[in-house]
């Protein structure tokens, strides 16, 4: 497990977010990846070809292993984003086999949530 030595944690204002549906608080300024790691949610995405779980590798924005779905927007690098109030972070499942062609496939998370969420 990852753990935090962040002694000032209590002084920094805390932010509420959900990671894979789990409610989590994180100090302001923390990266999304750190929040995930501390919550024990270290899997970031499915690899698109062999469909295996992957996790962050470099934590500095160069490997793109930490791409997750943030507020409905896929391919967001968790290690580069800071947590924001109300953020919804999800394990990314887009692979070569994902399809939204069937009329019953839900597209809601993918189209409706995206919009003004770039702030």
């Amino acid at each position: 497990m990852f753990r935090s030595l962040n002694d000032k944690e209590n002084q920094r204002s805390l932010i509420n977010l959900t990671i894979n549906g789990k409610l989590v608080t994180a100090p302001q300024g923390q990266t999304v990846w750190a929040a995930m790691a501390l919550a024990g949610e270290t899997s970031t995405r499915l690899s698109p070809v062999t469909l295996k779980a992957r996790s962050a590798y470099c934590a500095m924005g160069v490997c793109f292993e930490c791409m997750t779905e943030i507020n409905g927007m896929p391919n967001q690098q968790a290690c580069l984003f800071e947590v924001k109030e109300g953020m919804d972070i999800r394990f990314q499942e887009i692979t070569e086999q994902t399809s939204l062609l069937n009329p019953s496939d839900s597209v809601s998370t993918l189209t409706e949530n995206v919009g003004g969420n770039h702030d």
Binding site: F2, R3, S4, L5, N6, D7, E9, Q30, T31, W33, A34, A37, L38, C58, A59, M60, C79
Partner: peptide, 8 residues
């Protein structure tokens, strides 16, 4: 990086 930026 994790240590410096997040104390992790």
């Amino acid at each position: 990086v994790m240590l410096k930026s997040d104390g992790l």
